[in-house]
């Protein structure tokens, strides 16, 4: 009497032999021409449309220098704008506006906590359960709809012909 494990090992061996016996699939005849055409297309691109690593050394150096200059310019400009704004005392107005916004947010939060405290806990639990139920229903309907309308039948199993 053979054990299930022996049957599985035998099945593995037979499938392994059969699959290795398949050999290699022949590549389509168009593959080589496609690769060569793509290489030709890429070779015909101007240097600035190629990967940065393929740019001429001088162009790469110029790009790096220009990038560094741009960063430095942006920092200087930001510092200049900040100094001008600070000079016009706009920062004080901005600070007071932020403080007001913070107070408003805090008040809204306290109001929400108070309102939630007034609602009986059973209602809260029932509401949460209802939300979860509706979420699950929506997800289920979406999955069923996808499987009925879009899913490839062969991805769910093989049909008998």
């Amino acid at each position: 009497m053979t054990r299930p494990q022996d049957n599985r090992d035998e099945l593995e061996r037979r499938i392994d032999d059969a699959l290795h016996d398949l050999g290699q699939r022949r590549a389509p005849g168009t593959l080589e021409s496609r690769v060569l055409a793509e290489l030709t297309r890429r070779a015909a691109l101007p240097w600035w449309r190629k990967h940065f690593a393929h740019w001429p050394v001088a162009a790469r150096a110029a790009f790096l220098i220009a990038s560094g200059g741009s960063v430095q310019l942006a920092i200087v400009a930001a510092m200049w704008v900040f100094a001008r704004v600070h000079g016009l005392s706009v920062s004080t107005a901005a600070t007071s506006w932020l403080r007001s916004a913070g107070q408003l947010t805090s008040s809204m939060f306290n109001l929400s906590v108070s309102l939630v405290g007034l609602i009986p806990h059973r209602w809260l639990y029932a509401g949460a359960a209802l939300c979860m139920l509706l979420y699950g229903t929506l997800l289920g309907l979406g999955a069923v709809g996808y499987r009925l309308l879009y899913a490839d039948p062969t991805s769910r199993g093989l049909t008998q012909t």
Partner: peptide
Amino acid sequence: MHAYQDMVFST
């Protein structure tokens, strides 16, 4: 490429 194209495509 000739030597490997079948292997690459098969995989």
